[in-house]
Amino acid sequence: MDFDTGSRLKEERERLRLSQRQLAALTGVTGGMISMIEQNRTSPSVATLKKILAGLGISLGDFFAGSADAGTKWHFRHEELREITPAAKLGDAGARVIFRQVGRPGSSAVQMLHETYAPGADTGPELYSHDAEEAGIVISGQVQVTVGEDTQLLTAGDGYLFNSRTPHRFHNPGPEDCVIVSACTPPTF
């Protein structure tokens, strides 16, 4: 899925009639960074994008959502899972993190994600938090999860469950992709 993060961010900022400088003051993200994102000269980490979107009053899911699904659909093929991550390259190796959501953002009290972390990929250098609880099971590969001050290496078959208000971070230190199926309630993307 080709998603123009920069154009979408500029559209939302202009919809609220904010300058880049005003948005920077609201979010704590520099005006230069906002400018570079809007020009697609850099890709924001998940934590940075969440800060910016909080200033705009929209969730990650709404930011990346396309048109609404028709009817009350309960089944979704792999190709119908909606990518809700920035087209960002993260981690030391320039590796991607991909979040694919089951269903339409905002249509349920629970958010199910199919997450893929390429080798070296992570959710960003900063720990982040959000108002929810989340759980997941590692399907393949390995992931280093930091919750608060505790870091654990989880491998295929291992799971996690924590209060997302505690700052956390995910990182794939392994030589292969890590795949996780996770749930979050209430939805935060």
Rank of each mutant, 00 (worst) to 15 (best):
M1F: 04
M1G: 14
D2C: 05
F3C: 08
F3I: 10
D4M: 10
D4A: 14
D4F: 07
T5D: 06
T5C: 11
G6Q: 01
E11P: 06
E11Q: 15
E11F: 11
E12R: 15
R13A: 08
R13C: 07
R13M: 10
R15V: 02
R15N: 09
L18D: 05
Q20D: 03
R21E: 12
Q22V: 05
A24Q: 04
A25L: 14
L26V: 01
G28E: 04
V29M: 08
G31Q: 15
G32C: 05
M33Q: 10
M33S: 11
E38H: 10
E38K: 06
Q39I: 10
Q39G: 13
N40D: 12
S43V: 02
S45W: 01
S45Y: 00
A47T: 03
K50C: 03
K50Q: 09
K50M: 07
A54Q: 12
G55M: 03
L56R: 09
L60G: 07
G61S: 07
G61M: 04
D62Y: 10
D62R: 15
F63S: 04
G66N: 10
A68W: 04
A70Q: 13
H75F: 10
H75K: 10
F76W: 15
H78F: 08
E79W: 05
E79H: 14
E80L: 09
E83I: 12
E83L: 11
I84P: 00
A88H: 03
K89D: 07
G91D: 00
G91K: 02
G94E: 05
A95I: 02
A95V: 01
R96M: 07
V97G: 00
I98R: 12
I98H: 06
F99V: 00
F99R: 05
F99K: 07
Q101R: 13
Q101I: 02
V102R: 08
G103L: 01
R104H: 06
R104F: 03
R104M: 00
P105E: 04
S108R: 15
V110D: 00
Q111K: 07
L113T: 06
H114N: 13
E115M: 15
T116C: 11
P119D: 07
G120E: 02
A121D: 06
D122V: 02
D122Y: 03
P125V: 13
P125W: 09
E126T: 13
E126P: 08
D131I: 06
D131L: 13
A132W: 01
E134W: 03
A135Q: 07
A135C: 10
A135F: 08
I137V: 15
V138I: 15
S140W: 06
V143E: 02
V145M: 13
T146D: 06
V147Y: 05
E149R: 15
E149Q: 15
D150I: 14
D150C: 11
Q152N: 13
Q152W: 13
L153T: 12
T155H: 12
A156K: 10
A156Q: 08
G157T: 11
G157I: 08
D158H: 14
G159F: 12
G159W: 12
F162L: 01
T166R: 14
P167L: 03
H168Q: 06
R169V: 01
R169D: 01
R169L: 08
H171D: 01
N172P: 09
P173T: 06
E176Y: 09
D177Y: 08
C178M: 08
V179R: 13
S182P: 03
S182I: 00
A183D: 00
C184A: 14
T185Y: 10
P187Y: 11
P187G: 09
F189C: 01
